[in-house]
Design a protein around this nucleic acid. Structure first.
Lengths: 265, 265
DNA sequence: TTGAATAGTCACCCGTTTAATCACAAAAAG
DNA sequence: CTTTTTGTGATTAAACGGGTGACTATTCAA
């Protein structure tokens, strides 16, 4: 269990370094050097199992990236930057590159994005679904109806709801425990609570929402109760937009009926 | 000039997406979809020049990453997330992964990192050199002597100097214009200025520094005056540590002599 | 209903990349 | 001066990914 190879820091570090664009040799070399502090090609080769003759190329790669300093002697010595410095280096580089991407993508984004009115779109993965929900919150003019299992009501979503509320959007929320209801009432005084449509907790249900009566989204948690809760790739959602959209029509009918009875008390 | 293929947003976006781990097809597919908003495999294939039959694989990849939603119809329709949402998705993922890396690396970092006392280490690239300088600033107990060309005196370095000053480290700074000297005096009241050792501006000199009389670093800007100033990979530095380190001995001698005459006025 | 066109899936080929091995020259160590 | 260690370059082998085409399913129009 605890010796699961994917769980030791070495494997994690190597995996991430590779995914950040380092070669396998460079990644393993850096991890070896990071645990050694300083060392020669021979030292590195022994702990990293990188062929000694290839350590030099790996070091070149790392040196160019600013992750390793080199002492010109014989044998050459290599010095790894600290965990903190190395991580900061990546952070800076990646931040810079996402900025590049953001600028480039916005430049070629179409002016108006019409969305198919008669179909139902699918989204995969909890982070992606959350992003979509946030987009919807941000686009709301009038009303947000949001029903969710509590584990999916994350901080950023509450924030998104709060911002909408400040714009004057009326918030109707269901599915959360009484304790959390209190917290919501504190942060978003305008929010109204209503009861879930069905017994919520033991199903695989995820969330259901409606924006201004014409955008809807429904999601389900696809892995059973035994699945690891840390796996975020377990939510699948569908959404639709437009007055006559089938999903919208169905959910609007349900919500209208339900809200009339639930909120009129 | 302006039609330089590496400068158009498409190419930039594709390049970044690929470096973030997408396949070439997926990257080109996403960029095509981002400009279309919505489209079928055929549409995508036409603008992206990805073989139509492979658009589906690419979409799978993008769908799994939460960058594209899919409408199940015939023909299938694909919907790209907005530039902002897509960038945020990457930002989140990369932030998460640098955190993983940071944790993993710190776990395997050696307790004490002794540094070779008799050698001179080399660092490549302006960002890497800056990182090293910041590390040194952070480790200073007593005194920082720092001489730099003005273009290399970036915000984060001034910050690092400020933090050191607040710890009670005495700061001695040279090479900056009188305007910037004023600004420094405002932000770091304790800092003292002295004149450069030589005519600084038209050489390829970069920076020279000494920490507590026993850590030193010197750098040069390696590309000539005609090189593009935006290229950050043009600085090479050497550094050394320890009382008897050759680089330290030399620079300490110079600085001691110079500071005695320059600061005593 | 039927046939042409379009959409979608799958399997295969081939080139590039990169890991891995080897051969050899230069430099240290004994 | 010999032997070991170190560093560089070339070479081989395998994996990955781009590119193409065959084949089935679906749609649309006669």
């Amino acid at each position: 269990m605890s010796s699961d190879p994917v769980d030791n820091p070495q494997a994690i570090a190597i995996e991430q370094l590779e995914r950040f664009g380092l070669s396998a040799y460079a990644a393993r070399t850096f991890v070896a050097l990071a645990s050694l502090g300083t060392g020669t090609a021979r030292d590195v080769s022994q702990v990293s199992e990188v062929p000694r003759t290839r350590v030099y190329d790996a070091i070149d790669e790392l040196h160019d990236r600013g992750l390793v300093d080199v002492l010109q002697s014989s044998p050459k010595q290599f010095w790894a930057t600290s965990a903190e410095t190395a991580s900061r280096t990546f952070e800076h580089e990646l931040q810079h590159r996402t900025d590049l991407l953001r600028t480039a993508l916005s430049e070629l984004e179409p002016i108006e994005r019409r969305v198919e009115q008669h179909g139902v779109w699918t989204v995969e993965g909890q982070p992606a679904v959350t992003e979509r929900v946030l987009d919807f919150f941000a686009s709301a003019d009038d009303e947000i109806v949001y029903m969710t299992v509590e584990e999916l009501l994350t901080e950023d979503l509450i924030e998104g709801l709060g911002e909408a509320a400040e714009r004057g959007v009326s918030i109707k929320l269901a599915g959360v425990s009484t304790e959390v209801q209190k917290r919501i009432q504190d942060e978003i005084p305008g929010a109204r609570m209503f009861e879930s449509l069905w017994v919520w907790s033991d199903t695989s249900a995820g969330r259901v929402m409606m924006i201004d009566g014409q955008k809807t989204l429904a999601s389900a948690l696809v892995n059973g109760a035994d699945a690891s809760p840390s796996d975020p790739r377990s939510e699948t959602a569908i959404w639709g937009e437009g007055d006559t959209n089938s999903l919208v029509v169905v959910l609007r009918a349900i919500f209208t009926w339900r809200l009339d009875t639930a909120l009129s008390e």
